[in-house]
Amino acid sequence: MDKLVEAALGSFDNAARAEAKPYLLTRIRARMERGTESVWEKAGWFIGRPAVAFTGLCLVILINAMVFVFGNTPDKETKTEQVAQNPTDEFSYTVATIYDFENTQP
């Protein structure tokens, strides 16, 4: 085992440099003419980053949770309106009926 490991560790000794493929300059020039990444490619790359994607997912879950928790409770304004309306209904002091207008005599 030790011999194998030592042989592997020494396997880069006397290694020659790998040579680049031919016509590299032509390919570089072609790439420069094609231009750089578009805005959409850059945006896709940014959104695709694990940190950004995970944060986005957490935000969506958080917003959903907030809507679920706070969305079901009735509004304060509705409550106040109901409270204000209740005595009116109870004592009928604003109600004018046709009967009241027609019977003007005591």
Binding site: L4, A8, S11, F12, A15, A16, A18, E19
Partner: peptide, 19 residues
């Protein structure tokens, strides 16, 4: 397989690249 590695070292070098 790195093209610059000597033929007799190819197998050992592949293991080293993996490591």
């Amino acid at each position: 397989n790195h093209p610059g590695i000597q033929l007799e070292q190819k197998e050992n070098a592949a293991a080293l690249f993996y490591a």
